[in-house]
């Protein structure tokens, strides 16, 4: 399990515990946290679950694969270092303390 902080674009923080094996996207969805839409349900097909990862966490997360990289390239205001698709980040104990920031909008 990992305690994850989701920060809405307006600054509202949501701190929730997410079970191992879930994705960071599912953690937001299942806790009703707005700002992550995930229209495709986690198939890496829509890029509407984009976040900016806290700088301290960029290196600690598993790297983006080519598909995620390409989708992010055309997301709304992507950041070369910090942008991630939350449907592609699997939760484990190692992610305890993760903090992610929502963009102003998805796509």
């Amino acid at each position: 399990m990992a305690r994850i902080t989701y920060v809405e674009f307006n600054g509202t923080e949501h701190v929730v515990d997410v079970a191992n094996g879930m994705t960071v996207m599912e953690g937001a969805r299942d806790n009703g946290i707005p700002g992550i839409e995930a229209d495709c349900g986690g198939a890496c097909a829509c890029s509407t679950c984009h976040v900016y990862v806290d700088s301290a966490w960029v290196e600690k997360l598993p790297a983006r694969d080519a598909m995620e990289e390409d989708m992010l390239d055309f997301a709304y205001e992507p950041d070369a270092e910090r942008s991630r698709l939350t449907c592609q980040i699997k939760v484990s104990d190692d992610l305890d303390g993760l903090k992610v920031f929502m963009p102003e909008k998805q796509i």
Partner: peptide, 11 residues
């Protein structure tokens, strides 16, 4: 297998 083409096309 070309998400960039999809994203560009959509935009």
């Amino acid at each position: 297998n070309d998400p960039r083409a999809f994203m560009l096309g959509k935009r």
